[in-house]
Simulated assay, not measured.
Amino acid sequence: MEITGRIVKDASVFKLKENREVVNFTIAINDSYKPKDSTELKKITTYINCSYWVSSKSAKWLKKGALVELFGRIGLNVYIGSDSEAHGALTFHTSHIKILAFAKDREQTPEVRKGAKASSEKEPDDLPF
């Protein structure tokens, strides 16, 4: 199965028994549809929890805003909660990640980028031409 979406929060690495690590992250998939007998376009966003077991080194590239294409399978976690009710959650178990667009560097402000002048060094606006 293949899904494409944007990462909504930086990925996190969890250490488990026997030196195993898993990378967990969530993506958002935007979609739209027109209800029957309506001209209004409805927009919906679906959030999908994902796990990646292959390499924890990939977590440094899985930052908020990155557009990713994921290949894998859907898993279902079912459990009995403290309220004695059955609960379930879907997780996309990723086997391959393709980064389509890297996240923008949030440490740099829009005014100051590498190689650009700082906002205080801008040309004056009162030039005669």
Rank of each mutant, 00 (worst) to 15 (best):
M1T: 06
E2S: 09
I3N: 05
G5S: 00
G5L: 00
G5F: 00
R6F: 05
I7F: 00
I7A: 03
D10G: 06
D10F: 03
S12L: 05
F14I: 09
K15L: 10
K17Q: 15
K17W: 01
K17G: 15
R20M: 11
V22R: 00
V22N: 03
N24E: 08
N24R: 11
N24Q: 07
N24L: 11
F25D: 03
T26L: 04
I27Y: 00
I27T: 01
I29M: 06
N30A: 12
D31Y: 05
D31L: 06
Y33F: 14
Y33I: 02
K34T: 12
K34C: 07
P35E: 11
K36P: 02
K36Y: 08
D37A: 06
S38W: 04
S38T: 14
S38P: 04
S38D: 12
S38V: 06
T39Q: 08
T39S: 04
E40Y: 11
E40P: 05
L41D: 03
K42L: 05
K42A: 08
K43L: 10
K43Y: 13
T45S: 13
T46L: 09
Y47V: 07
N49C: 11
C50S: 02
C50F: 02
S51Q: 10
W53I: 07
W53T: 08
S55N: 11
S56W: 02
S56M: 04
S56G: 07
K57M: 10
K57W: 06
K60T: 10
W61A: 14
K63W: 08
K64N: 14
G65R: 09
G65V: 00
A66P: 03
A66Q: 05
L67Q: 01
V68M: 01
E69N: 15
E69P: 03
L70Q: 04
G72C: 05
G72N: 02
R73I: 08
G75V: 09
G75R: 12
V78N: 15
Y79P: 02
I80W: 05
G81Y: 03
G81E: 01
G81W: 01
S82Y: 08
S84V: 08
E85S: 07
E85K: 12
E85W: 02
A86P: 03
A86Q: 09
H87C: 03
T91F: 00
F92E: 00
T94S: 00
H96Q: 14
I97A: 01
I97D: 00
K98T: 11
K98F: 04
I99P: 00
A101W: 05
A101Q: 15
A103I: 08
A103S: 13
A103L: 10
K104D: 11
R106G: 08
E107G: 12
Q108V: 11
T109F: 11
T109R: 10
P110Y: 09
E111D: 15
E111N: 13
V112Q: 13
R113N: 14
G115S: 12
G115V: 03
A116M: 13
A116Q: 14
A118G: 14
A118F: 09
S120D: 14
S120W: 15
E121D: 15
E121T: 06
E121S: 14
E121L: 15
P124N: 08
P124Y: 10
P124W: 07
D126N: 15
P128E: 09
F129T: 04
